[in-house]
Design a protein around this nucleic acid. Structure first.
Lengths: 160, 160
DNA sequence: TTACAATTGATAATTATTTTCAATTTAAAA
DNA sequence: TTTTAAATTGAAAATAATTATCAATTGTAA
């Protein structure tokens, strides 16, 4: 955690940006919520707990900066809000998401899975891929089980 | 084209919606620009050419309706604007996109390509997939060639 | 220490989208 | 055909997310 922060600090410096207290507080929040998919507003509220003087604009600016440096990725699950997702250190590709249309939960897939597809696309479409976004919409394990229970219950009631 | 419109009309009716003149004009614009990726504003301006009385809110409402009926898909390429993309008739899966980071052009891939990946995801993550979004960002064929020419030119100049 | 550029916070402005509501249109019933 | 109720519309206001502005502060290098 502290190591990661140190490395991010170096990354900022090597692009001649400073790790100000506001930026550090924002990065810390992102590191502490690595598996969540926070909106700028979410990040703002969480940073405010530790650093109440911070302004919303600064959070936006920091998130833009981190996106530019590929430390985070901006994702949009179709609800009109940008969300910010910490990139796994060293991983070249952006990870994928499973969005449940029932409960709204978001699961991450760190495995690449797209190597073959990207090879085909580069060859057949002569398109030089630098990044990708892959999201599956569907029903998560938890909601599938809930639905099964519900069905069972209904068939019981119906047969009485 | 007219056939497609007829079938869309039936699709609306079977969900007890009407194909009003405004909706028809909007659908026509979408059919005429099937390979584009129009924003609501784009659609509004194009519909206005043929049907000047139409209001922006009606266009938004129609696009929502068509999205609900899976006649169009809402996509977001990260510029904060929703774009509307006609779904190929009968195709079960939503097509993919190649977005050029140089010129902003958007190319479509109609081939599925994800069958294997989806099988893996359904098995390993126990996630029941109903839809997907796949976008590749990179450099299109055209811009790659432009870059090559540029390099050549530069090395010529440098050697003089 | 001085000086200059980077950064910040508050606020205003912008942009895309949604909501509201009265007026109009439509389809079905009488 | 007239009546009626529900669906649809356009204009305008409201909302929500994000960006721009600008004066004040901070940090850094001379």
């Amino acid at each position: 955690m502290e190591n990661r922060l140190e490395r991010i600090k170096k990354q900022l410096h090597s692009s001649s940006y400073k790790l100000t207290p506001q930026r550090e507080a924002t990065v810390r929040v992102l590191l502490e919520h690595a598996s969540d998919h926070l909106s700028a507003e979410d990040v703002y509220l969480l940073v405010k707990e530790k650093y109440p003087e911070i302004g919303l604009a600064t959070v936006y600016r920091t998130l833009d900066l981190l996106t530019e440096l590929k430390i985070v990725d901006r994702v949009n699950f179709g609800d009109g809000v940008s969300r910010y997702d910490l990139r796994i250190e060293g991983s070249q590709h952006f990870h994928h998401h499973l969005v449940c249309i029932e409960c709204g939960s978001v699961e991450e897939i760190q495995e690449d899975l797209l190597e073959d597809v990207e090879m085909i696309v580069e060859r057949r479409w002569h398109f030089q891929i630098t990044d990708h976004r892959l999201t599956f919409h569907g029903i998560c394990k938890h909601c599938q089980e809930k639905q099964k229970r519900q069905k069972k219950k209904n068939s019981n009631t119906a047969s009485v």
